[in-house]
Design a protein around this nucleic acid. Structure first.
Lengths: 197, 197
DNA sequence: CTTGTCATGTAATTCGTTACATGATTGC
DNA sequence: GCAATCATGTAACGAATTACATGACAAG
């Protein structure tokens, strides 16, 4: 039930169309939640049926229809209540680790390639997150700017701080994965040397 | 398509029943993959239709039916081919982080509770993983023992090593989350002090 | 006039969760 | 006799992916 609340959350910053939301949920490697447009459009309709959001079709531009959704009071209440409840942790499903434990009869180069891919993947993530953290600090990160705009200056440190915190968490994760992959690669080199000796 | 390969992987150690597999996929906080029995039983039937596994019903015990699945040569080949292919990384979906970025108008105690829960969750995971790592090193971890049994001694360091590596990765992750949560809590305390000053 | 971006949708399928359902065996 | 564990399944629903489908507008 999280797509629902992810949408309500994004709409709590400002009204947006399905297209806008699909862009935000797809770009920047996902920014905490990913969803495709084919999941978003029907979900928004469902939220409207439930009275949690309300849509207006753009007048002005004829032909080019654009449906903008805004949060209703009921939607804001639903979001608040979800935010207050403790998080239920999703069961672990980790394809890479799963592969790793069964790779024990594969050629050593296959194992190495997997670990190198893993390192590369998280290095790419780290680059993106580091850039986004810089943008958060510089106050040029669009989503943050919009969120600050509608709120009093006294609330700004908390608003910014929580985003920075979340991003730092992603950075810490990426670094951990990179370090782990590097340690694993050294260990693998050791194995190979011993195997040849 | 990973449940399929998770099952093939587990069956590559030794034949097992749906019940055995459901126990392994459910216990110990999941050991890299979680699935419920209601997903496992039909999937095993499908794998049998595809000729990747083969089942035998226990004779001997009448009434108490127990269906044991073993990997076929085709199943082993499918597993090898999956293991060789590069991993596709799942898009990010992180409920806790998502909540965190929208918690900026909630009472500070709600934020604190979320961070404390997060720390607690990963401390619990860390305890389990640390115990399992000890068992791996002591050679008393059942799944590892079984896997070593069917393979020559020269392969043992690699078999054990990869499991240790995977577990160390989980431990590193858990530690990172705990440290992050603690940093976040200190920051939050600072915010509260400033807010009251 | 064609490519790219904006914009919104539906359909088919697969994957995963929750709940329902049944029956045998073992230990107390 | 009763509870716990072993053992296997189905049904209904919800979440997510992939593919199909359409059309406006802007820039070159």
């Amino acid at each position: 039930m999280s797509l629902k609340h992810a949408l309500l959350g994004f709409l709590s910053t400002e009204p947006a169309s399905g297209f806008d939301l699909a862009r935000e949920f797809g770009e920047s490697l996902g920014w905490f939640w990913y969803a495709s447009h084919s999941q978003i459009y029907p979900e928004l309709r469902r939220l409207e049926e439930q009275g949690l959001v309300q849509s207006t079709t753009s007048t002005g531009n004829p032909g080019k229809q654009k449906r903008t959704y805004r949060l209703t009071e009921a939607g804001a209440a639903e979001l608040r209540s979800w935010l207050e409840q403790p998080t239920e942790y999703a069961p672990m499903r980790d394809v890479e680790r799963l592969k790793l434990v069964f790779l024990d009869s594969a050629p050593i180069d296959v194992v190495r390639r997997h670990l190198e891919d893993h390192r590369k993947h998280h290095e790419d993530l780290l680059a993106v997150y580091s850039q986004q953290l810089r943008e958060l600090h510089q106050g040029v990160f669009p989503r943050l700017v919009k969120r600050l705009a509608s709120r009093p200056a006294s609330a700004h440190p908390m608003i910014t701080g929580l985003k920075v915190l979340a991003m730092q968490g992603n950075i810490a994760r990426a670094r951990t994965e990179i370090h782990w992959a590097e340690d694993a690669l050294s260990w693998l080199d050791g194995m190979e040397r011993e195997g040849r000796a």
